[in-house]
Write a protein that binds this DNA or RNA. Structure first.
Length: 451
RNA sequence: GCGAGUAUGGUGAAGGGGUUAACACGGUGGAUUGUGGUUCCAUUAUGCUAGGGUUCGAAUCCCUAUACUCGCCCCA
């Protein structure tokens, strides 16, 4: 049997419903922020990622899916979204847009050749935003607020925002020198990974999990002592804006991102669930003021984030948050025999066109099995169509909850269903106990405990 | 790239060399030929991830491959 490639997964059933719901919810939120959808190709010239993400990053040096196309061009399946968005920003001359900043969002599959584990796949989906054209700390705060508000909308409480500033390029290289000098005499006390990081990216020594509790770590020079006045100012303002919007966060000066392009603000939203492991970073991003330039565009500041769909669904499940997903159908149609099938088909399709969710028996089941099937589909009504119904233009309709049965003239069927489905309360009640009168869905904020 | 564990029907699984692969759920048919979700009966894997080996005999032991799960690195 041919199986799916390692680290990929098929989307169907309840998982599919969740994915569609989350996409829709994010879309409706991001539209309120007035961001524009931007879709770029899932493969790009290999060089884009080398210049964008950085040659020395693990993502580019050992995790990309590279291939030569039939014209011998070097291509790479995108490992992240930002580089392609930046390329598109430049190529479509969006820097010429009179209404700056350019605020974009994207959603799609990303590819990294990694060992799969919980919350990690080789093909995975990211939702993200990228904003170009302003260095205002207000925009850093807005971008963070989008992620926070999305999780809030979902009713996700166990999340933690961590922020830090990496400073501008000058602060960063001064700090790098300081770290190299500081750790040099202590290299023998650090783990082997840290020794490797010393050569490649000394900043990453700071978020080592093995050596985290060593005194050497605690006494290491702090990024904050090397920030330029401008960077300090920027960071302070970001924090002020977050405070003003009631967004709580933790300043974590060991937070260093693995992608080369970040400057000043970096942040992560983490699931605050014990033992969640590799899953725990749900969303990450920051500011990248030199990326547009590095890829060949005019100097333009940028800021954005990406959030992982699979991890989001994992954390929703771990937090026992149920989404407001419509299950069940309005009507299940049972044709009694072959003779009435085409008539039943016609009735079914007309009801569908009138806006009802209607299923039909395609299996020639007997009556008993059809009722079983109707229950499996959690239908609100069951319609029985036999030769008598067809001859006399009526439908036998049974309410699947009250078991009441009516014979309805076919001409009044739509009115009948409209009335019945409208008046019956099929929505689940909110379980918050706050007497909030809402239907328990998460796509609004009524102020009750549930949201 | 490194490490650990697992692999038996649609599903959860038992069986750790000896003839028809236990049990449960689910499915289908019937008891009840136009009214179900209870009950009862029947039926539902010529096959135990794949390939090779050991053996008179392999789901069971050995090897290889593959997949899945979970860590590490790194990341969303």
């Amino acid at each position: 049997m041919i199986q799916k490639p390692k680290g990929t997964y098929d989307v169907f059933g309840d998982y599919g419903k969740k994915v569609l719901y989350l996409e829709m919810l994010f879309q409706s939120l991001i539209e309120k922020y007035n961001y524009e959808f931007l879709r770029t190709p899932i493969f790009e010239a290999t060089e884009l990622f080398h210049r964008g993400v950085g040659e020395t990053t693990d993502i580019v040096s050992k995790e990309t899916y590279d291939f030569l196309d039939r014209g011998e061009r070097k291509m790479t399946l995108r490992p992240e979204g930002t580089a392609g968005i930046v390329r598109s920003f430049i190529e479509n001359k969006m820097y010429g847009n009179p209404s700056m900043p350019v605020k974009t969002w994207y959603y799609g599959p990303m590819f990294r050749y990694e060992r799969p584990q919980a919350g990690r796949y080789r093909e995975f989906y990211q939702l993200g935003v990228e904003v170009f054209g302003t260095d205002d700390p207000l925009m850093d705060a807005e971008v963070i607020s989008i992620a926070v508000n999305f999780y809030k909308l979902l009713g996700l409480k166990d999340v933690k925002v961590r922020i830090n500033s990496l400073g501008d390029s000058e602060s960063r290289s001064n700090y790098r020198e300081a770290l190299l000098a500081y750790f040099k005499p202590h290299l023998d006390k650090l783990c082997s990974d840290c020794n490797e990081r010393y050569g490649k990216n000394p900043l990453r020594i700071l978020d080592c999990k093995v050596d985290h509790d060593l005194d050497i770590m605690k006494n290491a020079p702090k990024m904050s002592d090397y920030l330029s006045n401008e960077s300090i100012n920027h960071f302070e303002q970001v924090k002020d804006y977050l405070d003003a919007n009631g967004i709580s966060y933790i300043v974590d000066d060991t937070l260093v991102r693995g992608l080369d392009y970040y400057t000043n603000t970096v942040f992560e939203v983490e699931a605050d669930i014990p033992g969640f492991g590799a899953n725990s970073v749900l969303c990450a991003g920051g500011r990248y003021n030199h990326l547009v330039e590095n890829i060949g565009g005019p100097s333009t500041p940028g800021v954005g984030f990406a959030l992982g769909m699979e991890r989001l669904i994992n954390v929703l499940e771990a937090s026992n948050i149920s989404l407001n997903i419509e299950n069940g159908i309005d009507l299940y149609v049972i044709p009694m025999n072959e003779i009435v099938k085409s008539y039943a088909f016609d009735v079914t399709n007309k009801l569908r066109m009138s806006g009802f969710k209607v299923e039909l028996d395609y299996m020639n089941r007997n009556l008993k099995s059809n009722f079983k099937q109707a229950d499996r589909l959690s239908t609100k009504f069951v319609a029985i169509i036999g030769e008598d119904e067809m001859a006399n233009d009526y439908i036998t309709i049974k309410n699947n909850i009250t078991k009441e049965e009516d014979k309805i003239d076919t001409a009044y069927l739509v009115n009948y269903l409209d009335e019945k489905i409208g008046q019956e309360d099929y929505h689940e009640e909110c379980t918050c106990g706050d007497d909030c009168n809402c239907d328990g869905s998460h796509n609004h904020d009524c102020g009750c405990n549930h949201h």
